[in-house]
Design a binder for these strands. Structure first.
Length: 484
DNA sequence: TATATTCGGATATCGAGC
DNA sequence: GCTCGATATCCGAATATA
């Protein structure tokens, strides 16, 4: 099924509906009263404070049966926002197995949302776009050594997202317009933390993170890795020309420069003669290529792409993390280019150390080569149970090897397909482990990344639409844990 | 307006191994 | 001669900032 046209068509259809539902839900025709109960904005006749949740849901366009079931299962005193979340999650689960017909989508749209296409909708959207605006310097909610205004750190999370289960979602910062607004709208209107890994290592990596973690008393992993190219590659210093003024590498990606390319650069420089500084047009030509392909100087007039070991080191992984096990060069580049920068993510996750001194249970979605697991381990947070969802067999081998080599005492469960993570199996895990403490993952960025010339088609793209699977699973975990 | 950056994908080619 | 993996080269645009 993975990759098949039918599967994709089905997922696309599901996602279309999901987007509409949540975007519209995101308008919040509901406000929070002083008692913490939600009620519809400008319509006092269906206040939930009066115990009229059922009528309100019907008015919102929910079907009687699902409204009734949801109230039964959530409890009569549950705030209406939580009931709506419950229903949405149920729909997502249902849709994951059976795509709704177009007729049903039309029905939902016409009944439930027709009254929401108004001024407040547009206002809300504008506000969201503004909220997801990326700042000039991507320092997130603070980086070590850079003072940040307290108002940035003391953010206001929606009350229903405070506390466990903690979640952490990551993707590229520079997406097509509107993508982060949509992601944020799904993930409870939480403001993304846009942060560049250049504050943690010698390479840039502009990423957005949406999470409900506390942000005070964060700390860095030790030892602090080199933060400039020159510190990271001391052997290259003698060969580094004065006219290459880079101190940080650009984003480490999955594609690397070729050997013939580096040879062309060498020839171009040497054309200008022995011991002569090249003319400006040659310097510009060379610098463009060096920046584009992240080349470093490794000899006289000789540049080279990073090797996989160097990439591993820059990304914060242990030496030889992706080496062996029959994994080729090209594949290592691909795996590492798609990974977390460990020091950066660990900085965010560091607040979990005091919260879970006995260790944590992790649901790791799109695990890759285990950036999150490595970060938690290096922070000294014991991994009690880790469910790792990752379709690449190579990645699973890497994570399994790391798990064994670091003598983990906990339990690691591999799940190859995200669609296997059903409510049923989640319920089983939650009951077995006592719940998940952290749901973490970065969904595929293929269709969001700037380097993609073929299929940069946004959040609904073939791969990047897996974001909705992250959302579906997170929703299920939140509701199941609340129910248990 | 000019410049810089970007967790990429499709295709052809090459060579090792069979 | 075939398969298969590795390699090389081609392919611009969206976005932001100066």
């Amino acid at each position: 099924m993975p990759g098949s046209d039918d599967a994709n068509a089905e997922r696309d259809e599901t996602n279309t509906q999901a987007t509409d539902e949540t975007q519209n839900r995101g308008h919040h025709m509901i406000t929070r009263s002083k008692s913490g109960i939600y009620k519809p904005k400008g319509n006092t006749t269906s206040s939930c404070e009066e115990g009229n949740t059922f009528s309100f849901l019907i008015e919102m366009g929910y079907e009687a049966e699902e409204a009734y079931t949801a109230i039964e299962r959530c409890g009569k005193d549950t705030p209406i926002m939580d009931v709506i979340e419950f229903i949405d999650a149920a729909r997502m689960r249902h849709d994951a197995h059976a795509a709704p017909s177009e007729v049903k989508i039309e029905k939902l749209q016409s009944n439930r949302y027709k009254h929401e296409l108004n001024e407040s909708t547009r206002f809300k959207k504008q506000k969201m776009d503004k909220m997801a605006h990326r700042p000039n310097k991507m320092i997130g909610f603070g980086v070590p050594g850079v003072p940040v205004p307290p108002m940035v750190i003391n953010r206001n999370l929606p009350h229903y997202t405070i506390g466990p289960p903690y979640f952490y979602y990551e993707n590229v910062a520079l997406t097509p317009k509107g993508v982060w607004s949509t992601i944020s709208r799904f993930l409870y209107d939480i403001e993304p933390e846009f942060l560049d890994s250049q504050y943690f290592c010698a390479a840039q990596r502009k990423r957005g993170y949406i999470h409900n973690l506390p942000t005070n008393n964060r700390f860095r992993l030790l030892p602090i890795p080199p933060t400039t190219i020159q510190e990271a590659f001391p052997l290259s210093r003698p060969w580094w020309p004065a006219w290459d003024t880079r101190t940080k590498l650009n984003c480490l990606v999955t594609c690397v420069g070729s050997a013939p390319l580096t040879e062309r650069i060498k020839i171009a420089i040497e054309k200008s003669g022995e011991n002569e500084e090249p003319p400006s047009h040659i310097k510009k030509y060379v610098m463009n290529l060096c920046k584009k392909w992240n080349l470093i100087w490794v000899g006289k007039n000789r540049v080279a792409p990073l090797d996989p070991n160097e990439m591993e080191s820059l990304m914060g992984f242990p030496e030889n993390h992706t080496r062996g096990g029959g994994i080729g060069h090209t594949e290592r580049y691909k795996l590492l280019g798609n990974s977390f920068q460990v020091d950066t993510v660990a900085y965010h996750l560091s607040v979990l150390k005091n919260l879970f001194p006995g260790g944590i249970n992790v649901l790791s979605l799109f695990t890759g080569v285990g950036g999150a697991e490595v970060a938690l381990h290096r922070l000294g947070i014991p991994l009690k149970n880790v469910v790792s969802v990752e379709m690449s067999k190579t990645c699973r081998i890497v994570v399994q090897s790391w798990w064994e080599e670091t003598n983990q005492k906990g339990k690691l469960i591999h799940v190859p397909d995200v669609r296997e993570v059903t409510e049923h199996i989640l319920k089983k895990w939650i009951s077995e482990f006592g719940g998940f403490d952290l749901v973490i993952g970065g969904s595929p960025c293929n269709n969001l990344a700037g380097g993609n010339r073929v299929s940069r088609d946004g959040l609904e793209g073939q791969h990047s639409s897996l974001f909705y699977e992250y959302y579906r699973i997170l929703q299920s975990v939140r509701h199941l844990m609340r129910a248990s």
